[in-house]
């Protein structure tokens, strides 16, 4: 028989998946049913949506476009050592 009942751990996992639009309809249904008896996970979900907005707005990529000239030199020197040994 189809199991509707899920634990809070499973419910919050579904909620996390849904933040990336990766939860299935069946999972969303289970989550909704879980909310009827669990206000904690309903609150988690509300806050999780907020967290997604926070991530979107505040997570930035550090600049990591290239290695410095010195760093490349260092690899180059190590590299030449290896080549001369071969």
């Amino acid at each position: 028989m189809f199991k509707f009942k899920i634990t809070c751990d499973q419910a919050t996992t579904i909620c996390d998946k849904s933040q990336y639009r990766k939860a299935t309809l069946l999972e969303i249904l289970r989550l909704r049913i879980h909310f009827i008896n669990c206000k904690i996970c309903a609150l988690y979900t509300k806050q999780n949506n907020r967290m997604s907005r926070i991530f979107k707005k505040n997570m930035r990529e550090d600049a990591f476009c290239s290695m410095t000239k010195e760093e490349k030199e260092a690899i180059h020197t190590a590299f030449q050592k290896k080549t001369s040994m071969n």
């Binding site: 996390d16 998946k17 806050q47």
Partner: peptide
């Protein structure tokens, strides 16, 4: 993967709280 994302997110939610 989802277990890892789930744990990261629950921990981040908690930390921000």
């Amino acid at each position: 993967l989802w277990v890892i994302v789930h744990r990261a997110r629950t921990q981040l939610r908690r930390c921000m709280e």
